[in-house]
Nucleic acid binder design. Structure first.
Lengths: 200, 200
DNA sequence: TTGATTACCTAAGCATATTAGGTAGGAGAT
DNA sequence: ATCTCCTACCTAATATGCTTAGGTAATCAA
């Protein structure tokens, strides 16, 4: 038997590809071993266990996403940066559904995942820079942006929008422009001093 | 051995409680049987298989959520209805993390889940009624609202906001008011005829 | 009490996760 | 070339989970 020459990294990449094909939840040491033409037990030379395999794929996906978003934001500012970031995020999810699921999966996030999470937060903050928000508003705007983005893309990917007309893609511009408008008029929407915008 | 008097419904309820305690992903026929003081094989008298158990819990959660949201929206309109709905959704997720995970879980949604999904869409449309949006805008607004809501609550529940200050709860009013503002000024943000608001 | 129903059980087959210890493929040194 | 070491991969074995088939006894209707 010729050796496959597997390494932790190559196994992780293969796992990511497998996730895109059969779904992240279906990825397991056994399934991946089958795919790689190797016995299940041999996987344990490269990964610690099933959870570790999944965590590695998640970290890989998070890094790839951050990379794509970086490229899309580079050299842009304001609305262009926002559009670039949002589209990069959505495109990645559409191109790599399994990896995207992995990236949005957290149960017991390790250091790798936490670091990638911070990188994403950094990118979002960079995009928001172009909207000149008051400093205290940045965390809130980051979360609002992140929530809408992740929510839409997750729902679209899971097929939740398939039941209704028009196509999900037609609603995407509304999400982008809605966010852009909100960020552009932040101070009008949320009056400055001690913002306690919600009563009841 | 005294009988437990289990039924498909009581098993589903027990499964939902278990999900809130140990996480939806950890719920299985074996684990639930342990909890109920019954042999694993005995579960198959009440459920078809593991996927069926999970689907039942998901349907239960979806129904409970719709119920809570109905109560929160009843007799209210406009901003009050929006706030009621969003808070009901978020509160349910915080009170029942396992059930919430189940409700946002879809892989191969059955009839039950699809019906519940429609009920949720109905409720959202009802809330949007108070904003007097142009008819063509309703699906888009529904998705925008749904995305932000689900995105924020999911991220909050998964602990993604725990790493940064201020507390996640402090950002919640911004999500509510941001959505409210957007819905209130829909026609300003998205000019009427043939809305093709996003270019590049 | 009898009879029927059915909630629960034991037994068994098969798949996966994981560990322990063996074997051989291939790179580098001699 | 051949020796040697490393290690990628293997076989074997245990534990556990999912699922089906076929019994047993608790409960209810008559």
């Amino acid at each position: 038997m010729a050796r496959q020459g597997l390494t932790p990294d190559s196994v992780t990449v293969a796992g990511a590809e497998l996730a895109d094909e059969i779904g992240f939840d279906a990825v397991s040491p056994a399934e991946l071993a089958r795919r790689l033409g190797v016995r299940t037990a041999s996987m344990y030379a490269h990964i610690a266990n099933a959870a570790d395999l999944r965590a590695r794929i998640a970290a890989l996906a998070l890094d790839e996403m951050a990379e794509q978003i970086s490229l899309a934001v580079l050299g842009r500012a304001g609305r262009e940066a926002l559009v670039g970031m949002m589209n990069a995020y959505r495109d990645y999810a559409r191109r790599h559904p399994g990896r995207f699921t992995a990236a949005t999966w957290q149960p017991g996030a390790g250091d790798q995942v936490l670091a990638a999470g911070r990188r994403h937060a950094e990118l979002t903050r960079a995009v928001l820079l172009g909207y000149h928000l008051p400093v205290e508003a940045v965390p809130h705007a980051t979360r609002l942006l992140g929530s809408s983005l992740r929510g839409f893309v997750t729902l679209e990917a899971s097929g939740s929008f398939d039941q209704s007309r028009p196509a999900a893609a037609d609603s995407w511009p509304y999400v982008i422009d809605g966010l852009h408008t909100l960020l552009s008029h932040w101070n009008d929407t949320f009056p400055q001093p001690e913002p306690e915008p919600n009563k009841k």
